[in-house]
Structure formats: structure tokens, C-alpha cells
Write a protein that binds this DNA or RNA. Sequence first.
DNA 1: TCGGTATTTCATTTTTTCTTGAAGTTCATG
DNA 2: CATGAACTTCAAGAAAAAATGAAATACCGA
Lengths: 172, 172
Amino acid sequence: MVAETQTVAPRAQKKPSLSDLEVEAIEMFINFLRLIGLPKSVGEIYGLLFVASRPMAMDAIMERLGISLGAASQGLKLLRTLGAVRVVYERGDRRDHYVADLEISRFATVFIKDELQPRMEMANERVRRMEECLAELPAKERRATRQRIERLKHWLDKGQKMLPWVLRFMKL
Amino acid sequence: MVAETQTVAPRAQKKPSLSDLEVEAIEMFINFLRLIGLPKSVGEIYGLLFVASRPMAMDAIMERLGISLGAASQGLKLLRTLGAVRVVYERGDRRDHYVADLEISRFATVFIKDELQPRMEMANERVRRMEECLAELPAKERRATRQRIERLKHWLDKGQKMLPWVLRFMKL
DNA sequence: TCGGTATTTCATTTTTTCTTGAAGTTCATG
DNA sequence: CATGAACTTCAAGAAAAAATGAAATACCGA
């Protein structure tokens, strides 16, 4: 616990030196994207790009955030497929450059389409199968269980009706 | 890889023996609850209780699902605080018995209140701080960055306006 | 086509999250 | 109160998820 006397600090040259603005943006997006199950590194990348005043190449992103090659590559790939980030070609530079797409609604749209809707359909299937199971139940239990399944259907319905509305609202 | 000749199968007496109905319900809730970041065991417990025709005691739940004492205790505790499960006293039995609360909207309500709204407020704070940072920016970048922050504010606003609406919709 | 830089992939390591079960606490009952 | 069953807690282990970085691949420009 005694403080190491700072003998040169051989490899402490890891200062990413992010501005306050960048730190705020990064932390904000880490938090929000975690909510929809995206790893920290993805939030970091998006946050950094969100406040970047110029398109950034992958190596700059890596260095700035202190993340690995693989994380940067995979994170950018994911953000691209989400439509959250766009590639911009910079004349005279072979590298791909990235900018954040400010249409944040795409996150939501893709999330709803890729995560929520498939789950909903699976759930519908399951409910159907559950109803089939009802027949095999002792009459006593059947009634109560049927009611519960009805309730479930009701909620799935509600959710499915709400999604398009949310989507529309998101798109302004 | 050669199939062990079934010499008595000494401790294979681990058959949880769940009905098809139970399996469907359990899998469904594992899926949905994972979406809001709850562990598998919590989904299992809620799913089991959802189709149970009678209140269940903790030891029955453990045995049925093949989960540990700790997982059952903690999972039930969490479900209780979420309002997803209720304790029912059964006369002549010292154990607590649990039933699933069918008002699934409580999940959503608690999720919104505990996860979404605090994040939103944090985000508002951050945006405020980000605007302070603007002053220190070179004039060139300032304009573009301000626009981005405005966009962010716009989205936060939208989200915050949507939440109460969603809440109302959930409550029928 | 070649040379080399930019990017992707993926086996491995690291980190985080979940589960387990023994020890501790609570509490109804005799 | 004392007993013991019911429940909770928590340190340690197991499992899952994410990050790393070396190797493979793609691609640009000459």
C-alpha cells in the first residue's frame, strides 16, 4: 500500500487524455447502450464518435479509448449494422473513417425489430402450445390455468400493439 | 464416449420432471426477463409460479427447478420487491407460500421507475455539464458540437415524454 | 502482380455475473 | 425460553460475457 516512488513510470504512458466533454458523452452512452445489452466498449466508441468534430479512423479510436484492435473492429461492425455509425471516405487516406449517425431512433428501431419482435413471435408460439397442454390438465386446474394463459395473451397483444406506436413516435 | 452401461445410475435421481406446460412458461419468462437484465433463475421461478395451480413453498420451488437454496431465496426476494410475486399464508404451514402476481404491468412499472427514469435524470445532468464544456471549445467545433448536444436533449425529452404514456398504456 | 497497410476473425485470457451451500439469523411453537 | 424448521446472507466456485492480440484476410495503390 506504500506509494511506489515513481521511478520513471516505465509504461504508464497510457494516458488516453479524453476531454471532459468526451468523458461525459462516453459515460452517457455506456449507460444507455448497456440498457439494451450492448457491451461497454460499444458504448465507448459511440460516445466518442458522438462528440467528435471530425470523422475518426479505427486506430485513432483504439488509441483514444485504450481498447484493443479486436474490440474496436467488432464494436464498429456492430454499430454499423445498427445503423448507429457510418463510414465516410476521406480523400487521400486508405483507412475507413467513422462518424456517429445522429438519428438515435435507429438504435431503437433495430432493437425493436431484432430483439423485441422475434421474442414476441416466439412467445405467441409458446402460448399456442400452452393452450394445447390445457387439455391434459385435470379439470380442476384447467380453468384457472386457462385464465392465466388468457392474461398472458392479453399482455402479448398489448405489447405488440404498442411497438408500432413507439416506433412511429421515435421517428418524430 | 462409450455409453456407460446403466449400472443403477446412482445419483441420476435428479429428474425435476416438469410438465410441458411448465417448461413452456419457464422458457418464456426466462427470455422476457433476461431482456430486462434478470438472471435465468429468476425467470425460472416466475415461470413456474405463473402456471402453478397452487401457492408454492420455497423448498418445493427449489426441488422442482433444481436450483439452490440461495438462488431460490434471492430470486424470490427480488421478485417480491418487483411486485411480481406475493406471499400467501397457508394455514397450518410455517413456510411462506408464493403466488405469481398476474399484473405483469408491475414488472414494466418497476423497470421504468427503477432503471429508466434514474438514467434519464443522470443523462439530463450530463447534458447540462456537456453544455458547460462547450465554452472551452475552439469556436470552429463549438457550433457543430452544440448541435449534437441539442439533438441529444431532443431525444431525452422525447423519451421522458413517452415514459408516462407507456406507463398509462400498460395499466390498461 | 506485389508490397504492405487496414481490417476481420477467433482462440485465449480477463472480467463480470450468477449460483452454490454452509453458516448465521429469525421466528413460530411447545 | 429453548428448539428446530424456515429463511437470509455471503464467501467461494462456476458459468457466461467481453476484451485481447496474433494470425488470416482483404484491399489499395504502384
